[in-house]
Design a protein around this nucleic acid. Structure first.
Lengths: 225, 225
DNA sequence: GTTAAAACATGACAAATATCATATATTGTT
DNA sequence: AACAATATATGATATTTGTCATGTTTTAAC
């Protein structure tokens, strides 16, 4: 099993602020898991009792609403931590995490990391900065949800996916989300998301092949009002 | 001018985790401001260079969207801190803060509090916990925005105001928001907010007198679907 | 390769919400 | 008290989005 102090992933998240001794201790107690596409990492309400460090793959953080629809709040990628909020708030998960493709994650139990969080102020401040960033993003999403049309939000989601995950060899977005996932990010009905994607196709802004989507005119997508 | 180490307000926020020495130092450099209803405390994009401790009054945190509408993201009340996120993220304000009634706030300059944040891990962890709470609330708002009707959201906002600020002598909500403010919290057109309030009145769930609103049937409001 | 299940697509219609117009009420100012 | 400015109220209508029905394509399992 890999060692945290040699793991390159930690450079991308707050774990980089841990001391070598802390990393070695954590390395000794972490467990590495392989998670298949579609599998649940944790569900809302669950006590996760630790944090996950995403070594590879992507997952969605979502919450089930009263009407039975899932709302995706955030996409978590390689290098991100998962579960910090619940850890800090000392409460059960507010969101569910489901793998969007095959993943590899390391799980660090709460009792091993909690002390570091309370005593290593560099680490704690780093987690704080990440959380501040997440909070800003969430606040911005609130504004978008409230003030932009479904079409605008969907276009922005495509741009977001393009900017964060890029293209594969054939020019298609490298992360494959179902139409339902897009609908659940944007906060609309699946049929509406499909309809708008068809519309964007007709307008020549994107093209598709099965579930795959290719951005044909980024500027055009950005211009949608 | 009051002294932080004797100020009762700090018991309600993260400042309670500062040491006596830190408090005395901060007390010496803070400035106390009186802000009238409707006045701007800071605007999005502004460098606030410190945090505000709200001693009295209430303000709204909002963001202007492209279509010219303000979206209210959070109400900040007596005892809360203001500006932590920008401080931690070391960036300009993402939201504007406008007083909803007369306020009294203390301003603590960045350079005086930043060291404490980076070195006093108890304080830093306390701020982290507050930010985790804010993040959870923002995520929950995203889900509500995406999945609930305007009527539900408005009803929930009324319940929120009732639970957090209570009633005055005559049984009206103690915080007076304009119909436009309600619309900007819920993320709808002002006319729609007004229309729904009228509807709630007809249904006997609330009553009004000018801008004042009285909750007549809390259970009924909670039951709206 | 066949086949069943799941996902995608689209039309028709219904419901929710926004916009525009206009009237009334409230509030603050002189 | 009179006035202007602002906020509230409501009707008529347009637009957006959701829902239901149904057909097609894609995917995954055998």
């Amino acid at each position: 099993m890999g060692k945290c102090e040699q793991c390159i992933i930690r450079q991308f998240n707050s774990l980089k602020s841990l001391t070598k001794e802390e990393l070695i201790r954590i390395s000794g107690c972490k467990t590495t898991k392989t998670i298949k596409k579609g599998e649940i990492i944790f569900e809302e309400g669950e006590n996760i009792n630790g944090i996950f460090c995403v070594k590879d793959g992507i997952c969605k953080l979502s919450k089930l609403s009263a009407n039975g629809k899932d709302q995706i709040v955030k996409l978590v990628v390689k290098g991100d931590l998962l579960g910090q909020r619940s850890l800090v708030g000392e409460e059960s998960a507010n969101l569910s995490a489901v793998a969007l493709n095959d993943m590899e994650v390391c799980f660090i139990p709460k009792h091993e990391i909690m002390n570091d969080l309370q005593q290593n102020s560099k680490f704690s401040f780093d987690v704080l900065q990440q959380m501040a960033k997440d909070l800003k993003e969430s606040d911005d999403i609130i504004v978008n949800m409230a003030q932009k049309s479904v079409k605008q939000r969907l276009a922005e989601t495509l741009i977001y996916v393009y900017n964060h995950f890029g293209n594969n060899d054939e020019g298609f977005l490298d992360v494959i989300l179902s139409r339902e996932d897009y609908a659940n990010i944007v906060g609309t009905a699946t049929e509406s998301a499909i309809r708008i994607l068809s519309q964007l196709k007709k307008e020549g802004l994107i093209s598709t092949s099965g579930k795959q989507i290719k951005i044909e005119d980024l500027k055009g997508l950005e211009r949608i009002e």
